[in-house]
């Protein structure tokens, strides 16, 4: 008898369709954001980079002549748009976290519509699975496209535009690699978890965004230590420690080979500094840093770390929902 009366739950395609219908404004906003930002990046990549590179060629050709004619507006246009698009790409994880907390779970729990879904033959676990999977696919696709375009823009400008960001400039470092995609996915889960925990749309919106900022700060702190750094030693007297990239540590090397902190005395060539260095028995500078070759190892290990954290947060979200609602075939404390 039970076999006859137990209908199969609604297939995933139907749940997906209704999720997309319910979040149509968010879907349209995301599509518009990806299109507009993508178009801006393409414009930057083609005409604006060419114009700015041309202006830099003109400027450099002037040398030291007093009168120089070059297209300064093109350089500034490139610089501004590069900055704005970079910030926009990096805002995606925050937008995702805020939306996931406010719109995806927080509002549903606040208004009780989640209960409506859970009594339409859709179990809470299935509901959350759909609510996370579908946005995850869309967020991954959109963010990957944006990051790829950003990288394309940056590569096109490298070596041609004198003021272009270096690979290790913090915003460019993030916006150029998969770490931003991982951050967007982490934002989705962090926001959804905040919504489940707080059950208030507005509170979850802010908590989601703030929690993502904290996660980002944590990733930024551990990132330089995720891959062994390179040490470069230079002679005293120059401009200080050398080695362009992500600096982990720097200071002085003593005659005994020990690494010590650099005293605060301004430029090394200054007499007071020379005195201080002599007292420390310093023979050179050192710098522990990540050269350009470490870009991908750093990006990929950090992405992997963040993906692991995201998986843990996802497990926490499901655990919370299962604990709070009735779940089939799970024995709870006290039911014996």
């Amino acid at each position: 008898m039970t076999a006859l009366t137990l209908p199969s739950p609604a297939p995933a395609s139907r749940r997906t369709r209704w999720l997309l219908r319910l979040h149509r404004p968010a879907l349209c906003t995301w599509a518009a954001l990806v299109l507009v930002l993508g178009a801006a990046l393409l414009w930057l990549w083609g005409p604006l980079t060419d114009a700015a590179a041309q202006a830099w060629r003109q400027y450099n050709a002037c040398g030291l002549t007093a009168r120089c004619s070059y297209d300064q507006a093109a350089i500034l246009r490139y610089k501004d748009l590069y900055q704005y698009t970079t910030l926009a790409v990096l805002a995606v994880p925050f937008l995702t976290a805020a939306w996931a907390g406010g719109g995806l779970t927080g509002r549903e729990l606040e208004t009780g519509t989640a209960r409506l879904a859970w009594t339409q033959s859709v179990s809470p676990v299935r509901w959350l699975a759909t609510a996370l999977t579908v946005p995850a696919v869309l967020v991954t696709a959109g963010t990957t496209l944006l990051v790829w375009l950003h990288r394309l823009v940056w590569t096109a400008g490298e070596g041609r535009i004198d003021t272009a960001d270096r690979w290790y400039d913090i915003l460019t470092f993030y916006a150029n690699g998969p770490l931003t995609v991982a951050l967007a996915l982490a934002g989705l889960v962090v926001g959804a978890l905040a919504g489940l925990l707080l059950r208030r749309a507005l509170a979850a919106l802010f908590t989601g965004a703030v929690a993502l900022a904290a996660l980002w700060a944590a990733v930024g702190t551990v990132l330089p230590h995720l891959w062994p750094s390179v040490t470069r030693v230079t002679a005293l007297g120059g401009d200080g420690p050398a080695g362009a990239g992500i600096t982990v540590d720097e200071g002085l090397v003593t005659a005994g080979g020990a690494h010590v902190a650099r005293p605060l005395c301004g430029i090394g060539a200054h007499p007071s500094c020379a005195e201080a260095y002599a007292r420390l028995d310093a023979v050179g500078y050192y710098r522990d840093y990540h050269p350009r070759a470490h870009y991908w190892p750093l990006q990929l290990t950090a992405t992997g770390l963040l993906a692991a954290v995201t998986v843990l947060l996802t497990v926490a979200a499901f655990w919370l929902l299962r604990r709070r609602t009735a779940t089939a075939a799970v024995r709870r404390r006290g039911t014996a």
Binding site: T119, T325, A326, T327, R332, G334
Partner: peptide, 9 residues
């Protein structure tokens, strides 16, 4: 309705 899990019983 299965919207809450019982604490006991």
């Amino acid at each position: 309705a299965g919207l809450l899990a019982p604490t006991e019983g």
